[in-house]
């Protein structure tokens, strides 16, 4: 009688989702990224296959976000131009994808037209050679115009489009099918809605192998543990055989962390918390590192120092 094997033997593997298309695949990207494919929990390489490393996408927006100087200065003057910002992300910060948000399309900011947004996408495709993740401004009505225009401008590039929710999924599915992109399925820190959105996407004729799940990311200190446990539970369910939960997962770290006081207010106000220049990027890195352990496959990040720390974390662990 042999000694029983104590390793966990999961039934299912997480779906592999590739973003970006090379020339041979009908796009113009030099590199593509592949998420998922694991047959065990994060970093447990002794227990199963982890064919694809987690990926960092650099945060870029078409206007300068409402961010602290510590972050804006670390990015540099390129933050004023989305294409230069994207280029710096790829060439200097070493990110493997660009996450583009059209914050300027909102009526409350620049009310940028869908055509202008599409032109920025075209410019970005010419300037950087990594896969793109494209978002509107977060206002459903405007995004229904902006996303089709941006998606069309990147037709065949196999971008990741954000995002399909329980209410707007039909529009986003139509865009992704028409222009051959992948889709982000978003839920508001709710695993049940997360599963429901995937069911709806499947009913709308989308293969779940084209889906990356997003549970609205929480910054460290602001519900981090809720999102962590959802990511972890979804991943375990996916590995146990729940095919509706077997999608790779995305976290928007940069988009969330820099809104909280711990990452944006210096010690003149937060006495005893230490210099913001060090604390801010650490806050982003620690948040990202935590979500990696929970089962995040794609991290959107902003501060070059935080990006560097997480790149090294990933390389040390895998």
């Amino acid at each position: 009688m042999g000694i029983p094997e104590l390793k966990e033997n999961w039934k299912n593997t997480i779906n592999e989702v590739t973003i970006g298309a090379t020339k041979e695949e009908g796009g113009t990207r030099c590199k593509t990224i592949t998420l998922g494919g694991q047959s065990t929990l994060p970093f447990l390489s002794f227990e199963g296959d982890l064919p694809n490393k987690p990926v960092i996408a650099g945060y870029v927006a078409d206007i300068v976000p409402d961010w602290p100087d510590v972050l804006k200065n670390a990015i540099g003057k390129e933050i004023n131009d989305p294409i230069e910002w994207a280029q710096k992300n790829v060439e200097e910060f070493g990110v493997e994808a660009i996450n583009m948000r059209f914050l300027g399309a909102s009526e409350a900011t620049k009310n940028r037209s869908p055509d202008e947004c599409a032109k920025i996408v075209e410019g970005m495709l010419k300037t950087v050679d990594v896969p793109l993740i494209l978002w509107g401004c977060g206002e459903e009505e405007k995004d229904n115009e902006v996303l089709p225009a941006c998606s069309h401008a990147a037709r065949g590039e196999n971008c990741l489009i954000g995002s399909a929710t329980e209410t707007n999924y039909q529009t986003v599915v139509a865009i992704c099918k028409a222009d051959k992109h992948k889709i982000i399925a978003e839920a508001p820190v709710d695993i049940n809605i997360g599963k429901q959105v995937n069911i709806l996407l499947q009913d709308a004729g989308l293969d779940l192998k084209e889906v990356v799940m997003l549970q609205t990311t929480a910054a460290l200190g602001y519900g981090f543990d809720y999102v962590y446990t959802i990511l972890e539970r979804a991943r375990i369910a996916g590995l146990q055989g729940d095919k509706l939960m077997a999608s790779p997962q995305l976290c928007d770290i940069g988009g969330e962390v820099w809104r909280v006081k711990e990452a944006s207010v210096d010690e003149d106000i937060l006495t005893g918390w230490g210099a913001l220049e060090k604390r801010g990027p650490m806050w982003e890195a620690v948040c990202a590192g935590g979500y990696l352990q929970a089962g995040a496959d794609l991290l959107i990040m902003a501060h070059p120092k935080a990006i560097k720390i997480i790149q090294s974390t990933i390389n040390n662990l895998l």
Binding site: I191, N192, I193, K195, Q196, N198, I199, L200, Q202, D203, R233, A234, A237, D242, L244, M245
Partner: peptide
């Protein structure tokens, strides 16, 4: 033992 979603019955048979 499994995760609830509003369409859990339909999803089982799809």
């Amino acid at each position: 033992k499994s995760i609830y979603a509003d369409s859990y019955i339909d999803a089982f048979r799809s």
